[in-house]
Every structure is written in C-alpha cells, then in structure tokens.
C-alpha cells in the first residue's frame, strides 16, 4: 500500500467544503446577475427565463447573496477558531498561514523573473503568492459586493440610514466589482489552476484535497522539504482518490468551467447591446 501513497494532503475536508459552497453560490449569483444585467438582450432574457423571469431571477440572486454573506460570517468564525491564540499574533506568520509576508514579495519578484527567463522558479512553500492573492481577493471582493448588495437588498430600508442617492453609487460599485470578480475567475483563475500546461486539463486538488507528490516537489518544494525535515511527510501522504470520485470531480469541475466560459463569451458578445450608457 505504501507505494500507492503518491498524493500529498493539501486541503482539509472543511477547506474543500468552503470552496465547493463558494463555487455553487458564486455561479448562481453569476448566472442570475448576468441574466439581470443583460435582460434587454435576447440572451439575457433567455437566461432569466430559466429562473422564471425577471423578478424570480432577482429574488434568487438576493437569496444566494444572503447565503454567501452568511457563509462569509461562518468563515470568519471558522478562522477565529483556527488561530493559535496562545502565540498570537506571531502565529499568524509562518509558512502554513495565508497571511501575506515578506517571503511573498520575494516569491512574486522571483516568479516574475522566472516568467521572463531571468532566474529559476522560486521555491514556494505551502502557499504561493498567487494562491494567497486568490484567497484574499474573495475577501475584498465579497466585502465590496456584499456591502453594496445588502444596501440594494431593501432600498427603502437602506434609505432610512443614508440618502437614497447612495443606491445609485451602490449599484454601480456592485456591478463593476461583480464584473471584476467574474472576469477574474473565468479567465485568470481557470487558466492558472486548470489550463496551465502543468495543470492541464484539470487540477482536482481543491476537490480531492490532495496533490501529486511529484508535482508538489516542483510547485511547492520548500513545503515538501519542510515536511520531510520535520518528519511529517509520511503522515501527510495519501492514496489517490478512487476512479469514480475522480470522474465526479472532473465532470463537476468542467461543468462549472464551461458555464463560466459560456457566461464570459456571451457577455462579451452581447456587451454592445447593453443600453445603460
């Protein structure tokens, strides 16, 4: 059996669950949001009709938004339980956390140099700079769309606490941040995680929770070396997931990727038909 343990544990079941919940919510919000945004176009109307028309689409968008914000609140509580308070705030640093540190600046510069062929690929530890960026991007993105989304949830109630014209501002900020988030996920995130030659066609690490040990030795050599040095490499190894699960991850992942690319392509194709300015 020892020979089969070729995978390195990377994400806990809780991590994977967060990501899965985020995917489902994000896609519901994307489809309903785009359907709403493009409602004047036949394509947008068609999308909205899948959800039962304009009002229902909006209602689903609102509910999914609340669920996502509830998820964010739960995630915050989860984070608070994960922090080692005895050693706080020093425990926030180190290679196991997602907090940006000096090493990430070095990692970024080193990676940039590697892209241009100037130096070798930096030896990343458990989290590379772009993985940390992806994590925190969700935070700031959700803060912006979340706050503006809550403002737009009940405009009459909101205007009790601030001038009604703040809704003009909130709607535009909500839109732009949503376009930024979708554009980033459907192009950059998909490319970096799945379409790079080293990950193509599909990187199931976030679904399966493990990554190939040989791959980890290239992508995260410092992590593997550290685990080995600390004598924890053995316990961190896992067997590959069973074939049916691998098929499930692939089919699910590519359904989401296809949906994302579909939204992106048709949104760009229909952008000229939008009449809001």
């Amino acid at each position: 059996m020892a020979d089969e343990r070729t995978r390195l544990k990377r994400f806990t079941p809780v991590h994977r669950l967060w990501h899965l919940g985020l995917i489902l919510n994000f896609m519901i919000l994307s489809v309903t949001g785009i359907a709403w945004m493009f409602f004047e176009t036949p394509w947008g109307r068609g999308l909205a009709n899948l959800f039962g028309g304009y009002s229902n689409t909006l209602q689903i968008h609102r509910i999914a938004g609340l669920v996502l914000l509830a998820g964010l609140a739960l995630h915050l509580i989860y984070l608070l339980t994960r922090i080692d308070w005895k050693d706080f705030p020093r425990s926030l640093l180190g290679p196991e956390t997602l907090v940006f540190q000096l090493v990430d600046v070095k990692g970024f510069i080193g990676h940039l140099g590697w892209v241009f062929g100037i130096n070798k690929l930096p030896r990343f530890d458990r989290w590379s700079w772009w993985e940390k960026f992806d994590y925190w991007a969700v935070w700031w993105g959700l803060m912006i769309v979340g706050i503006t989304g809550l403002m737009l949830y009940d405009p009459v109630l909101t205007s009790d606490y601030m001038p009604g014209w703040m809704l003009n501002v909130a709607l535009w900020v909500h839109r732009i941040e949503a376009v930024l988030a979708m554009g980033h996920i459907f192009t950059i995130h998909f490319t970096v995680e799945h379409w790079r030659p080293s990950s193509f066609p599909f990187n199931a690490a976030m679904f399966d929770g493990t990554m190939d040990l040989e791959e980890a030795k290239h992508e995260h050599p410092e992590w593997v070396a550290r685990l080995d040095k600390e004598g924890r490499l053995g316990e961190a190894l896992a067997t590959p997931p069973p074939v049916p699960l691998r098929i499930l991850y692939f089919v699910f992942g590519y359904s989401i990727i296809t949906l994302g690319v579909f939204l992106l392509v048709f949104a760009i194709a229909n952008a000229a038909l939008l009449t809001l300015f």
Binding site: P155, V156, S159, M162, L167, N168
Partner: peptide
C-alpha cells in the same frame, strides 16, 4: 416602492453618466 421616504426619493432615476 411601499414606504418610500423623502430620502428614498433622492435616488436619481435619471442618473448621469
């Protein structure tokens, strides 16, 4: 918009570019 207040009515329906 049930319950609209003067504050609510300051929303610019014809908002500028």
């Amino acid at each position: 918009h049930e319950g609209a207040t003067p504050s609510f009515a300051s929303y610019m329906v014809h908002e500028p570019n």
